[in-house]
Design a protein around this nucleic acid. Structure first.
Lengths: 341, 341
DNA sequence: TTGTAGGCGTTATCAA
DNA sequence: TTGATAACGCCTACAA
């Protein structure tokens, strides 16, 4: 199965000639076949197959003003992002949803500094017809940029926008997740719950913590100790240690991500606290990691692949119907019980 | 910092008008500035800045026959790939190396079935000027496709090509890694070493195992028991169990990836074998994961980000000098000693 | 060193 | 329903 050379690739005139029609008719036949006779249609299709024609994207772009590609933007990449399988899984979902489409994925990984010149350039429409921003992390500048642009975009994960910028996003129900965690731990008999949260300026952890507090309050419990980390193993290790130092009575911890929960489990083990007998732990994400911690982690589902697919669906909608402004879609979560509770 | 609209974006004629030169001169000034007077150069640069000009990629592509983008191909994605941070780290390296370039990254994640029609289309030059194939896994069809094409390409990880297809690749020194593992475990007093390898039809695990055997042989040791897995946690868990069932005397295991090593550690713990007292373990990759296993894993460095950057450098070389056929570059590895040995 | 002019492969407009 | 024909924005001989 050899790859055909790019040089001298068959062009539309070739197709038209073989099919015995004009370029215009050939073009129409290829693009949906609006107002072409069945005969012409068949002839063109046969010709396309015969000569192995593939439309030239550049030429098409030039006249349609579309790029037939969408940007997947991941601001502020680095260790945090890449040690977390969340991103890769989202990407898989995006790919899957786009697989029966002509759209190609242009990847825009952020560099240090947030909205780089490069990112800016992507968002100016030169490179893509729309953007999906995976904002597991803070994305102020990107949200700003995008809201000031006409480029259709969808955020995966509620973006943190200081100003009240209307954005379209899809996210898991973080609030419910936090509440479920509280209810579950309380039902297990937790007397002294605590939480390890993510950064205070990011949508997901803030929402998770809000739900958690709601759950506690609904059960008549007072506010609990909270420590903040940044989704890395190291920060979570430090935060857990601090928490246990300050509150040795803690017997249940809600941690804002599986990765951080795995760090918490390690700290607990190092300190001789048994899980779940002495301290119960609930994570968030339900990545593969949760099945392989010691012991396997009770956690909340963050449907990364579905988020990716859903984002594509929303973006495609915008692309067809014109920008719709600021819809949002919240996917349900669920508590997966394993052995840490 | 608002994003400028795509509609009515300034064009080259605009720049030329403002600069008081012709389109041709403006174009030359923008593209390297060959044969333009300093005066014209300055005027054009000023004009570019003033009107906020960005060259239209499609128009440029149409005439240059280049797309100014490179494809990052990841065949056969799915669980395996995405539970492994190797891929994401490579991607980071690729991005970094490309960041001061006009080249954009087009992502081509494989679907089931290997060389899909979609992948084929990417490789036909419609979408990219060159390709980087991350072949942590088997890539027969892709290697075939690429070798039958004129598209410059670089594999990350020696591809497994049944036929003797000449390919350009960059890889870590897997053979040395295997040998280092053997030497290290033997030096630690291992009497009954064994190995958990990856698939027999993939470059990396085969090379690692070859080096491992070399190391044993050099020390006058007989061939050791080997079990094969496929880089997933589940397969490694099964393989380790089987190995211990068949060879209870084993006191040292070389595992072909950190992820699989983490599974092996779990099995050992479940069976009451102490690490490193009863059984020593060496992994491969040195991803973040290795620092967080219980106990932290001794492993061999697989410089994923460097591989990504190196692949870009090699590809850029091909793009400039014309395809060079089949060079290869092997990056050194090193043993990182932690607590499993 | 500069400008003129032609063409890259498509789609879109407008008559026929 | 079809076919000329004119853009789309840029690069690049070629001539000046």
């Amino acid at each position: 199965m050899a790859v055909q050379q790019q040089r001298g690739a068959p062009t539309l005139v070739e197709v038209a000639r073989v099919a015995g029609v004009s370029r215009a008719t050939a073009s129409r036949a290829i693009n949906g076949g609006d107002r072409v006779s069945p005969d012409a249609m068949a002839a063109v299709q046969a010709a396309v197959k015969q000569v192995g024609y593939r439309p030239n994207r550049a030429a098409r772009s030039l006249v349609t003003k579309r790029t037939d590609s969408i940007a997947v933007v991941i601001p502020e990449s680095g260790r945090v992002l890449f040690s977390d399988p969340f991103f890769a899984t989202v990407l898989q979902g995006v790919t899957t949803a786009l697989s029966h489409t002509e759209l190609q994925i242009v990847l825009a990984l952020g560099e240090k500094g947030g909205a780089s010149e490069r990112l800016n350039s992507y968002l100016r429409g030169q490179h893509a017809d729309g953007a999906i921003v995976v904002s597991h992390h803070r994305t102020d500048k990107v949200a700003e940029l995008l809201s000031g642009s006409t480029m259709p975009s969808v955020f995966i994960g509620r973006p943190w926008s200081p100003v009240d910028t209307p954005v379209t996003y899809i996210d898991v129900d973080n609030v419910s997740g936090g509440r479920l965690a509280a209810e579950h731990l309380l039902a297990r008999g937790a007397q002294h719950p605590a939480a390890i949260s993510g950064p205070r300026d990011m949508g997901a952890p803030v929402d998770r913590l809000a739900g958690w507090h709601q759950g506690l309050a609904a059960a008549g419990r007072p506010p609990c100790p909270v420590r903040f980390a940044d989704f890395t193993v190291d920060s979570a290790t430090a935060a857990t240690g601090q928490l246990l130092d300050d509150h040795p009575e803690v017997d249940a911890i809600f941690v804002a991500s599986d990765l951080m929960a795995s760090a918490a489990l390690r700290v607990l083990r190092d300190r001789g606290r048994r899980v779940p007998q002495d301290v119960r732990v609930v994570g968030f994400d339900d990545m593969d990691l949760a099945r392989t911690t010691e012991p396997p982690l009770t956690t909340l589902v963050n449907p990364a692949e579905k988020l990716g697919r859903g984002a594509v669906a929303m973006l495609l909608g915008q692309l067809e119907n014109g920008a719709d402004g600021h819809t949002q879609r919240i996917l349900p979560t669920a508590l997966i019980e394993r052995e840490t509770t």
